[in-house]
Amino acid sequence: MNQRKPLSHETMLFTMNRRQFLVRAVPIAAGALLLAACSPDAAPTAPQAVSARPTLTPIPSGASDAPAALVNGLPPALAHAEPYASVNTDELGDALNTFEQITTYNNYYEFSTDKEGPAKLAQNFQTTPWNVEVSGLVNKPRTFSLAELYTLFKHDEYIYRLRCVEAWSEVIPWAGFHLGALLKMVEPQPQAKFVKFTSVLRKDQMPNQNLPILSWPYVEGLRVDEALNNLTILATGMYGKPLTNQQGAPVRLVVPWKYGFKSIKAIVKIELTDQMPVSAWTDAAPDEYGFYANVNPAVNHPRWSQATERRIGQTGRRRTLPFNGYEDQVASLYNGLDLRENY
């Protein structure tokens, strides 16, 4: 069973079109460009952006966590002129999706319920100035400007699979920082059990916020231990550049072992609380979307199977992995929890 593989690249009908070829070639070119463009500043910190698989080993706390100097106002991990990734595949050997695929196929209901809509309709969304208020059950509540997020936290590349609850997936080279680093800075109080995230409410720039599609603003939540897990990041960029608006710029959550809707976009508020937050999708359809929303091929959505998924840009299907392939890092969070009940 586990041997079953999606159609190989040779037999795929959409193999290596022009764009894919370009993106494969880009890292080499962009790497050279990076070295030429910003070697004086970037040289001492270059390994952080390029280190292979920074995602899978807990980053030791210590001096190496210090953020690097900014390049043109951006952390080096976001300062590439052209789409850049340090590797071509994820740790399972599957190719990264192209920059174009990732930025033209988006679920962002504030703008559109079409996948192609957000790329067009989010063009005029304003991401500056931007503040993220961190409050609730914390000792040091604080509002971070985007510039502070850039300078206070060490930005790295994180190659993650994104598995949408709709049974499609992508491999995305995010750039961002550990949510845990931010939480530690505000010092959560012991009674804080959950983290509640809130998206921006901006009806003049987000047309669908005028329609009762979901209860706006979009809200998501994690348990504190999930939020502190080393896989959980706040992403500010992708492919070595700042996030595009349609991806949830300027700062979004990425929780790679959960279905994509947990990874809330355009965050303006992070609250620590002792109450389990009600996610926007749970609020809309509680029997279809639960609080945990861990990727789980054994628990089907009421209207479709979660056993397989289609990688964007490919034909045919592949088996979905428990916890989206991150079982080793996160399964222990759920010891003793019935994941069928807590979907």
Partner: peptide, 14 residues
């Protein structure tokens, strides 16, 4: 063909 890659087991089960 394109969505399920003619994988009969996937088509039936899933």
């Amino acid at each position: 063909v394109l969505d399920y890659g003619l994988d009969l087991q996937f088509i039936l089960d899933d």
